[in-house]
């Protein structure tokens, strides 16, 4: 499975791709995580890719994705055309307005107000990415839930583990309830 997370710096985009990759490794799968580096990663658009497989990974920089998580309008517009036909698009519904003309055929769309929920429920917009992670993982199961929990605990700043895990569980709940 090839997933691209895209948005602005400060939304936890790169760390999301890192956490999914790390979870896959904890599951004993193969994973590659990649991100934009240098000046291109500053002050604006930001992306993190992760490839998960049961076998050796040969494609180092995939050009098409099974899943796109878009957290801003420019990210959506730039990357949705690269989604594979039949792929999955996950959006923050408050931050992205979709445009059918840009989208490949037969994609599955899921939109949740992750940033809004993060702010209202946890008082911190930054955990929107954890809501998305829980949501996406429940929807598509790239990694096990236990691995995801462990990877989150080990990757977020010390002292924020509880809040981040709760946000992830909120995402799981939204997916199970069929929201979005």
């Amino acid at each position: 499975m090839i997933v691209r997370f895209a948005g602005f710096g400060g939304q936890g985009i790169v760390v999301s791709s890192y956490i999914i990759g790390k979870s896959a490794v904890l599951d004993g799968k193969k994973a590659i995580q990649n991100q934009a580096y240098g000046s291109e990663s500053r002050g604006g658009e930001c992306r993190g890719d992760v490839v998960i497989a049961n076998e050796e990974i040969y494609e180092l920089e995939p050009t098409n994705y099974d899943v796109l998580v878009a957290m801003t309008q420019p990210a959506y517009e730039a990357f949705v055309p690269l989604l594979k036909p039949g792929g999955t698009l996950i959006l923050d519904s408050d931050l992205v307005v979709t445009d059918k003309k840009l989208e490949p055929k037969k994609i599955k769309k899921h939109a949740i107000p992750a940033t809004d929920i993060a702010f209202k429920k946890f008082g911190r917009k930054i955990v929107a990415n954890m809501i998305i992670l829980g949501y996406m993982n429940t929807l598509l199961s790239p990694v096990s839930e236990s691995a995801l929990e462990k990877a989150i605990s080990e990757s977020v700043p010390k002292g924020t583990e509880k809040m981040n895990l709760e946000a992830m569980r909120e995402g799981i709940r939204l997916a199970r309830e069929g929201k979005g």
Binding site: Y18, G21, V25, K30, A31, I32, Q33, N34, Q35, Y37, L60, E61
Partner: peptide, 9 residues
Amino acid sequence: GEIGHIRES
């Protein structure tokens, strides 16, 4: 730079 900047186990 490719191998240097991708993350793997």
